[in-house]
C-alpha cells in the first residue's frame, strides 16, 4: 500500500508516494535523492544512518516516514548553510576526521545535536554522545578532536555575536 508522505527535509517540503513500510532511510536515498545518508546494517546496530528529527539523532533505518510527518528532518546535506560549511564540517575537514567518510554524515549530525544541547562538552561527553556511531577507520581520536574544535569555535562565534 502506497501512501503520500509529506516531509520537511532540511527546511524544504518534500512529498513522496511510497509504500508505508519503506523506512526513512530508504525514502531519503531512493525517493528524495539524498544519498548523503548512509547505511551499514539497517538494523539499528551501527549508527551510520543517523539523521536528526526535530534536532534529535535518530536511526533512519528504523523510522517510518509516516511516523514523523510534520517533523523537521536534517540530513548531512542540510548542515551547510548558504554554501558555508557548518563548523563541525569545517573541523572534520581540517583535522582529518573523515577517512573513508562513510560514517561521517551520521557522526556529524549526532555531534551537531550534542553541541546544540551542550555547547562546550567535555571529551567524555563527546564520547558518550557518539557511542552509538561506529567508525572503523579513525579510532575516533580525530573525530573527538574535531568535535571539540568545532565546539570551541562555535563558542567563540557565540561570544562575538
Amino acid at each position: 500500500m502506497k501512501v503520500r508522505v509529506a516531509l520537511n527535509v532540511n527546511g524544504e517540503s518534500r512529498e513522496a508516494l511510497v509504500p508505508v513500510h519503506k523506512t526513512l532511510l530508504e525514502v531519503l536515498r531512493e525517493d528524495l535523492g539524498l544519498t548523503g545518508t548512509k547505511h551499514g546494517c539497517e538494523l539499528g546496530e551501527c549508527g551510520t544512518c543517523t539523521v536528526l528529527v526535530d534536532g534529535e539523532p535518530v536511526l533512519s533505518c528504523l523510522a517510518l516516514p509516516v511516523e514523523i510527518e510534520g517533523a523537521h528532518i536534517t540530513t548531512v546535506e542540510g548542515m551547510a548553510e548558504g554554501g558555508r560549511l557548518h563548523p563541525l564540517q569545517q573541523a572534520f575537514v581540517e583535522l582529518g576526521a573523515a577517512q573513508c567518510g562513510y560514517c561521517t554524515p551520521g557522526i556529524l549530525l549526532t555531534a551537531m545535536a550534542l553541541l546544540a544541547e551542550r555547547p562546550s562538552p567535555t571529551r567524555e561527553e563527546v564520547r558518550e554522545a557518539l557511542a552509538g556511531n561506529l567508525c572503523r577507520c579513525t579510532g575516533y581520536t580525530k573525530i573527538l578532536d574535531a568535535v571539540e574544535l568545532a565546539a570551541l569555535r562555535m563558542g567563540r562565534q557565540e561570544a562575538r555575536t
Binding site: 539524498l34 544519498t35 548523503g36 545518508t37 540530513t75 548531512v76 546535506e77 548542515m79 551547510a80 560549511l85 564540517q89 572534520f92 575537514v93 582529518g96 573523515a98 567518510g101 561521517t104 554524515p105 556529524l108
Partner: peptide, 10 residues
C-alpha cells in the same frame, strides 16, 4: 584531504 569536503557534505 582533497576529498574531505565532499565527504563532510554527503
Amino acid at each position: 584531504k582533497v576529498d574531505a569536503w565532499a565527504k563532510v557534505v554527503g
